[in-house]
């Protein structure tokens, strides 16, 4: 009965329907943990941007000279001091600053790279796509830390890369390293998205009127994959922050110059604290890392729910 089915299809656009973006926003806001997480991350970001004001001491400034350099938390060092008497609270602020920078920078680079590669692979298919998928399969199948360490050394072992990567223990090197890793996961996601979009009418239509490949990718495919890309971006930030901490923990992290620090370096120092019982050196950096990881993950989770209505959290 053509009349009936038509009437039904149209009725979905009728009524007071919200635009997809409004609906996404509404779904995002209904994820309470994500809203709290946004506030936490926002405050934290402000805090570290304003580090010169929010930190009580310089990053490398001693509160207490040795021999009694390990102070437990007290009024002149809220979170205690480390082995050479530096204020943990101030160092955490500077450390988070470096870690957020690493996280954001490598996430943005790798997501941009991954989105482009994934879009081209998904759109063109064929050999390029095959090879790309094989390579990423291989990389993703390996234990992450092993690949990370080996690739790190390979990068550092190629002298002609020096101008781009800088010294192996620089923050820049870490960002390049994580970007090289991060794009693969994103490329997979975007590729999948593009494969499903490719068959949709508006892409067919663009192709039919002879739009160029690049035009279709940039004007149609990428904007329509913006949801998954945003989600990937969020998770890449956490991924990079945790990877930095992991590397630093095992002694392969950045040694930011002039006593500058990172969350990873602070967490790495916790290893020693376990043996000695200076609990604050372990508990506070770990706690900050957990809060950051959890908050950004919650935001990513809510973004995913908000931009992908098919996923029903059942809540």
């Amino acid at each position: 009965m053509p009349g009936l089915t038509q009437g039904f299809a149209l009725s979905e656009q009728n009524e007071n329907v919200l635009s997809p973006r409004q609906m996404a926003l509404r779904r995002f806001v209904s994820h309470k943990a994500a809203v709290v997480s946004c506030i936490i991350i926002g405050v934290l970001t402000l805090f570290v941007i304003l580090a010169p004001f929010t930190a009580r001491y310089g990053v490398n400034q001693s509160v207490q000279a040795p021999p009694n350099s390990f102070l437990s938390p007290r009024s002149n060092a809220w979170l205690g001091t480390d082995d050479i008497g530096r204020d943990l609270y101030s160092r955490l602020i500077y450390g988070v600053r470096v870690s957020l920078l690493i996280g954001l920078a490598s996430a943005i680079i790798s997501v941009t790279l991954g989105a482009l590669v994934g879009a081209v692979a998904g759109f063109r298919g064929g050999k390029f796509d095959d090879i790309l998928m094989r390579v990423t399969d291989l990389f993703l199948a390996f234990p992450f830390l092993v690949t990370l360490l080996v690739v790190r050394n390979v990068l550092g072992g190629l002298p002609w890369l020096k101008p781009i990567t800088g010294e192996m223990n620089s923050v820049r090197f870490i960002i390049v390293l994580f970007s090289i890793f991060g794009w693969m996961g994103v490329a997979r996601i975007v590729r999948g998205q593009v494969l499903s979009l490719k068959e949709r009418e508006f892409v067919e239509a663009a192709r039919a009127v002879g739009a160029s490949r690049r035009y279709i990718i940039v004007r149609h495919l990428l904007p329509n994959s913006i949801g998954p890309i945003m989600v990937a971006l969020t998770f890449s930030v956490v991924g990079a922050i945790i990877s930095e901490s992991t590397l630093a923990f095992f002694g392969y992290g950045p040694q930011a110059g002039d006593g500058a620090t990172s969350l990873g370096i602070l967490v790495g120092a916790a290893k020693g604290a376990v043996q000695t019982g200076f609990w604050w050196l372990a508990v506070f950096p770990c706690f900050v890392l957990i809060i950051i990881a959890l908050s950004i993950n919650f935001i990513g989770d809510a973004l995913r729910d908000a931009t992908d209505p098919r996923l029903d959290r059942g809540a």
Partner: peptide, 8 residues
Amino acid sequence: LKPITGFP
């Protein structure tokens, strides 16, 4: 054909 106008 004369479909019913309007929506359910």
